[in-house]
């Protein structure tokens, strides 16, 4: 199976390795050699291999733009109304309400290169392209905070020490919106969009504890569930 993506691919790769599944993985991340530069979407060294690929390409591209926007609470806390998610009655009115369309556009811009890559695969690859939804949010703020501190991140510089983690309800909405952006783009491109494995989510839509990896990623057990989905869609 062919997998293209960034950090969310790691859980799948770990699962594949433990299960002895052969995975042809190509990393597309800001610091990776295949990351687009200049006008060319695909680097020449990738194109040579790309033209010889056969079978379904699975994409786990993107999936962190929502975390860039709202994992850590902002100096001036914000929120937005998602038209398909009921806003909690207790929502703090002191937060700045940002228009849904503005949040959506901002995520689209942050995820811009990933969306262009997805489009590039869809348009240039003669075979099937399937996109995997990024894993859900982890509800537990303590786990996220500790995970960030453990990575050696400067808590003062990032605002984590002063402002903390954004409320789970906001992070959930941002994740949903990020997913919807990819789902919409998939529909336009004729790419199959595969939602997260239903077994991995709690009733309120968060990642179940046994699938937690680090603050923004799932683990190999989650990867196994996704790998099973990939087999079904291969």
């Amino acid at each position: 199976m062919i997998l293209v993506g960034g950090s969310h691919a790691t859980a799948i790769r770990q699962a594949a390795r433990s299960m002895g599944v052969d995975l042809n993985f190509h990393v597309f991340h800001r610091n990776s050699p295949l990351w687009p530069s200049g006008k060319e979407l695909f680097q020449p060294e990738f194109l040579a291999e790309f033209n010889g690929l056969e079978g379904t390409i699975f994409s786990s591209l993107g999936g962190n733009s929502h975390n860039v926007m709202g994992l850590i609470e902002h100096r001036a806390p914000f929120d937005f109304v998602h038209p398909r998610i009921k806003t909690k009655a207790k929502t703090d009115d002191d937060r700045t309400w940002v228009p849904f369309s503005a949040v959506k556009q901002s995520i689209e811009q942050t995820a811009g290169t990933f969306l262009r890559l997805l489009q590039g695969f869809a348009e240039r690859y003669p075979g099937r392209v399937v996109h995997l939804q990024s894993p859900p949010q982890i509800e537990d703020e303590t786990f996220i905070r500790q995970g960030i501190v453990d990575k050696g991140t400067d808590a003062r510089k990032t605002g984590l020490a002063k402002f903390g983690i954004a409320p789970a309800a906001l992070r959930y909405k941002l994740w949903r919106l990020n997913s919807e952006i990819f789902e919409e783009r998939c529909a336009e491109l004729g790419v199959k969009f595969v939602p997260v494995p239903s077994a991995s989510i709690t009733r309120s839509g968060f990642l179940k504890r046994k699938y937690w990896g680090d603050p923004t990623h799932a683990n190999a057990a989650y990867g196994k569930l996704v790998l099973e989905q990939m087999r079904q869609h291969a």
């Binding site: 991340h29 990776s32 975390n67 960030i148």
Partner: peptide, 20 residues
């Protein structure tokens, strides 16, 4: 603030990529 938030998200992503 966006740079700081991006940095956190990217550090986590970089770490995840380094640990396959």
């Amino acid at each position: 603030e966006e740079d700081a938030a991006r940095e956190v998200a990217e550090v986590l992503c970089d770490e995840a990529l380094l640990d396959p």
